[in-house]
Nucleic acid binder design. Structure first.
Lengths: 145, 145
DNA sequence: CCTTGACCTTCCAGTCACTGGAACGACTAT
DNA sequence: ATAGTCGTTCCAGTGACTGGAAGGTCAAGG
């Protein structure tokens, strides 16, 4: 199986699959022509990775989860620990976004959005009448790659 | 005013302030010694940027908002448009995270988390019994820089 | 005058998880 | 032989910083 087939089946871009090999998540064999030759095992792993990534696990999480997946002597506590950590990070992010959303919605609501220059949104950002920015620690959240 | 003072006042790291100059968001004067010399105007702009970033606006949004802020002839509709777009992006992200959260919480809940190897989390990721990964389009969401 | 230490400068590299593109080789069908 | 599709590698870019190295500047104290 060549990378194109695997890409179609798994839904992962070929680039991503090559990247996963680069960072050691999979180790497909090579044919005489130098092409990667994927086995069912690799396909399975890629599906695993796709699902884990879709749940927002980092690549490092995925690496650890994959190792646990292949370790028959694992303790489910280890897996649960990773998942719980991730759940907490997700909750944090949701809270952050909701706080942003609340402030922003208020401002948008207060703005006439017409041809005149008066704008409560700019007023807020400029003068900071309302406490629009309580926590500058983690302003992140806008990663639309 | 040197960069250190401005950093303390605005709460933005000096590195970030230099970066903002690099990408043309601010244009502080320079003293004879080569040090940046910040005026009230710069301080004001940085505060604006800090608040806009805290609300999750991208740097490009910030650039546009700043331009509108300084344009007396602006139409508030333009500002509102940027803010509404951003609000929509936030809502999308929240929805994505909530969907992840729901699936993940279910799995975590089903996992004993003990010394035994059986683990519903790994079962799901491995075999995909449950549809844990409906949308692979935007798996992102984990940008904890 | 010299040193210490805090401050400032620039520039380069790294982050995360890819993604785009160039330049080239391999295979398939006509 | 040729065209077109697939595969390969390698390099660079994304967003918004952040860390660190190597060096210049300044004020205070001895």
């Amino acid at each position: 199986m060549n990378i194109g087939d695997v890409s179609r089946i798994s839904g992962l871009p070929a680039k991503t699959i090559r990247y996963y090999e680069d960072i050691g998540l999979i180790r497909p064999l090579r044919g005489e022509n130098g092409y990667r030759s994927f086995q069912d095992k690799d396909l399975h792993k890629l599906a695993f990775l796709g699902r884990a990534r879709a749940l927002g696990f980092t690549i490092e999480d995925c690496r650890n989860l994959l190792a646990l997946y292949e370790d028959d002597g694992r303790e489910s506590a280890a897996v649960k620990h990773i998942a719980e950590d991730h759940l907490a990070r997700i909750d944090e992010k949701i809270a952050q976004l909701r706080s942003m959303r609340a402030t922003l919605a208020e401002l948008v609501n207060a703005c006439a959005g017409d041809h005149r220059p008066d704008c409560p949104i700019l007023n807020d950002l400029g003068h900071g009448d309302r406490p629009a920015s309580d926590q500058l620690k983690k302003p992140a959240g806008n990663c639309s790659h």
